[in-house]
């Protein structure tokens, strides 16, 4: 009955399908206006600015300006940082999610983990940096305990919180929970019958994961990876509070540019910002392509 009523009234519900004019679109004007003013136009401004001189002429000089060694190096560090923290977040997050959801642990732990993930995934930025300084910094509790109890001197071992490794470690703190939050519903979507069908056909454990579970999760994993990548790539606050500006990553360089700490051509800032959009854009493009290939079997 519901189906019938659906089909016979649907033309009225989707007025765009009708040749006649309708005022319905007016309802989304406020949203469209807001998105235009505060999301789309600013982005377009950046993109156009990256290809113009201060006088307004079209140029590729700004983009060419990106080819400086310090910017290229920072970009490379940024990409590496984002890739590694996204990959780590995905793998560790998936592992944790499997352990908590499918591992036979009490369900209380699952709820607690999911709630905590909600908090931790938003516990980014400045406070996170402070927390890691208090943990692994020069006077951090772990540093001191290792030194006093086990005689292990972290800095002598080459560990420095204010470094690539330290930053990766800190980023994982919000990357892993974010992964957990996104992948948990996908894990729930794995039907028990799939596992049982696989087992009765001789595939258990790793074999089941390799042949069924991972392929089924693959689109979600890819999507989360792209999201985590962008998440890390654009993050400024944690790095800033943790390393000052001693570790040069792209967002920190842009930050300095905007602040005017570095007195240079303002249009280089445009170019850097454009580069950032390009990289997260490319990451998402790769994701979309991979996903559409993986998704032939999806509805």
């Amino acid at each position: 009955m519901t189906i019938a009523s659906h089909t016979d009234t649907s033309p009225r519900r989707s007025p765009l399908a009708l040749p006649g004019w309708s005022w319905n679109w007016l309802g989304v004007v406020p949203f469209a206006l807001f998105a235009l003013l505060f999301l789309i136009l600013p982005t377009i401004q950046i993109v156009f600015g990256a290809f113009r001189t201060p006088e307004g002429d079209i140029t590729l000089r700004n983009i060419a300006g990106l080819m400086e060694p310090n910017i290229l190096h920072a970009a490379w560090v940024s990409i590496k940082l984002s890739l590694i923290s996204a990959l780590g977040g995905c793998i560790i997050g998936l592992g944790l999610a499997i352990a908590v959801i499918r591992g036979g642990l009490p369900s209380v732990l699952r709820d607690a983990t999911m709630t905590f993930s909600g908090v931790a995934s938003n516990f980014a930025g400045v406070p996170l940096a402070f927390a890691f300084i208090a943990t692994l910094g020069r006077l951090g509790i772990v540093t001191l305990l290792l030194r006093d109890l086990l005689g292990i001197n972290l800095s002598a071992l080459g560990f420095n919180l204010i470094s690539f490794t330290g930053l990766t470690l800190a980023y994982l703190y919000f990357q892993i929970p974010l992964m957990l939050l996104i992948i948990a519903p996908a894990l729930d979507g794995l039907k028990r019958e799939w596992r049982e069908a696989a087992e009765s056909l001789g595939a258990e454990g790793i074999e089941y994961w390799r042949r069924v579970a991972l392929p089924v999760l693959w689109p979600s994993l890819l999507g989360t990876f792209a999201l985590l990548f962008a998440n890390a790539f654009g993050a400024v606050a944690t790095a800033m509070a943790l390393t000052g500006s001693s570790l040069s990553i792209i967002p920190i360089i842009l930050f300095a540019q905007i602040r005017g700490d570095v007195l240079q051509d303002p249009h280089l800032g445009y170019a850097i910002a454009f580069g950032m959009i390009a990289i997260t854009g490319i990451a998402n493009l790769i994701y979309i392509i991979l996903r559409s290939r993986a998704e032939r079997w999806l509805k």
Partner: peptide, 30 residues
């Protein structure tokens, strides 16, 4: 996995990522 018993469920439970042929071949591939 050691019993060699075939199972059919109410919900079909076909592996969505595999084609029909892939599904049928599953146990043989394993």
């Amino acid at each position: 996995s050691q019993r060699n018993v075939g199972l059919v469920f109410q919900s079909y439970a076909l592996f969505p990522n595999l084609t029909v042929a892939g599904n049928i071949a599953f146990g043989l591939k394993v």
